[in-house]
Amino acid sequence: MNVAALRRGEIQRLLGGSPVTGPFISLIAIFVLFGLFIPGFLSLRTVSNIINATTMVGTVTIGVTLLMVSGEFDLSVGALVAAGGYLFAFNSTGDGSPVVALVLAVLIPGLLGAFNGAILITTRMPSFIVTLGTGSIFSGAVWLLSGGSLFQTLEHPPFYDLMNGRLDIVNNLLGSGANFRAAGVWILGLALVFQYVLTRTRYGNHIFATGGNPGAARAQGVRTNMVKVLNFAISGALSGFAGVLLFSQFRSVRVATGEGVELNAIAAAVVGGTLLTGGSGSILGGLVGVLLISTLRSGVVQANIIPADNFEAVVGVTIVGAAILNHWLRGRA
């Protein structure tokens, strides 16, 4: 092997060795590009606003990515965010205990997620269809539970700050408009835990195998149905937790909370290098995808390139572009 071949091999490994590399380079490039053309973009204010805008989609994407690696989709996560929000709201206000409220708001959406998985493995219907249906059912249940109305409170227990308050100490230390909130820490922590689960544990190995080749996985004794049900439960639980984080910040929740997060989470996962067909992906990549889309929204709106109402089109173009880039990098690796 000569030097040129060696170097090319190294570069390819660097670019394609990890599924996170491509999206991460894109994120940095887009951030720097906006920084060059938009005055004041390169600031802690912008960075913290970009991160704060990802509270819901960031939390949900972790579970959705894990599920997608095992070969399934969850379109019911939006309804489960609202469910988590109401469960936390009802049980943490008045005489309720916020800790009990948190447990219920994570546990019940988690069980509903497991219910998704149970339907999937018993009917063998595609998860797209199953969760499209159960999403509407869950949404209807939330409507009944809430009476269809907005719930808000003026109460402000310290537990809300623990969940998603301003990180005053950090913000004061950094100064210059920094506005970081606790959700960012929770999301980063959860992403690291689930990245570890996916890449460094037996269960993670079984997730990859379940999504990559379920027949081969079963032949080696992997319980693919159990993997899927558990991943649906994780996806549901994290959606409920997203509802908790949102309510802790805004102290209000409505039936439509969470609407649209289903597809945004899938988009973020794909931008972050996860295959739509399953078997490959990365939780940290999903998080990078979330940040990339959020950076774009922020930049496009601030740059005022096109009417702000239309910025979704730019986001759409980037999602497709990122997916093509990832595909190309995968082919080169």
Partner: peptide, 11 residues
């Protein structure tokens, strides 16, 4: 060893 169910290609 199955013909098409032997290994997971992405792993």
């Amino acid at each position: 060893v199955y013909q098409d169910l032997a290994l997971v290609n992405l792993m």
